[in-house]
């Protein structure tokens, strides 16, 4: 990172306004979609479009949350870490909106039809799986839960965010008709974010191993 940019970024991200600003920005897609729904901007099938948009934003926020740590490593701006939980919770929030729009508006609380969809349609089964994982992660996202679970168990549990991400992408891939590229773009980004971590932890294991060899050599 260019000299001077890193301290500036750190300063901005550590400001007391940074979190409210990110919070407001993360709400913008919802506000914008509701505005469009109210003004006819969602097209002739606003319900289907609302389901689609909330799902896409859930995926986008999930990838964004997963990008925080790699971004922190690459840029060295550790202040980024403050936003990871909030962005992750917004991924859950949009997934919740997605499920609520589908159950409450699209199906209008026809629970029998919803249940049939979940057990019968693989893409909905997979999507609901992703939602369940995200719900568990949201429920254990507080500092209190980190303490209660213990750092190591908590980290292991929260690695399943990649399962939720993969299931979300698969859900998208399975629901589009024909051979379409956009779900693959999401898959590609998810894989890249996973690879960065694998490379990082392989790198640190190698460093640990090297340190061990050096000790032996002493």
């Amino acid at each position: 990172m260019a000299a001077g940019l890193k301290p500036a970024a750190t300063k901005a991200l550590s400001s007391r306004w940074a979190k409210p600003a990110v919070f407001a920005a993360a709400l913008a897609p919802m506000v914008w979609t509701i505005w469009l729904a109210g003004t006819g901007g969602l097209g002739p099938e606003p319900i289907a479009e609302g389901v689609r948009q909330s799902g896409l934003w859930a995926l986008r926020f999930l990838l964004l949350a997963l990008a925080v740590t790699p971004l922190r490593i690459v840029t060295g701006v550790s202040a980024l870490a403050r936003f990871r939980r909030m962005i992750g919770l917004f991924a859950f929030f949009y997934a919740l909106l997605h499920v609520a729009t589908y159950v409450g508006i699209d199906q209008f609380f026809d629970w029998a039809a919803v249940w049939k969809d979940i057990v019968k349609r693989p893409y909905i089964t997979v999507g609901m799986g992703a939602f369940l994982v995200l719900s568990a992660l949201a429920a254990t996202s507080t500092n209190g839960m980190v303490r209660r679970l213990g750092g190591r168990r908590w980290r292991t549990l929260h690695r399943s965010v990649f399962i939720a991400g993969a299931a979300g992408c698969l859900h998208y891939f399975m629901l589009v008709k024909g051979w379409q590229p956009s779900p693959l773009v999401y898959f590609g980004i998810l894989s890249a974010l996973l690879l960065v971590r694998v490379a990082k932890s392989a790198g640190s294991r190698a460093a640990v191993a090297r340190a061990g060899i050096m000790r032996h050599a002493d």
């Binding site: 099938e45 319900i47 289907a48 699209d106 039809a113 049939k116 349609r121 399975m174 629901l175």
Partner: peptide, 8 residues
């Protein structure tokens, strides 16, 4: 992928 029982 889609139930055909209902439509909008």
């Amino acid at each position: 992928r889609w139930s055909q029982a209902t439509e909008r």
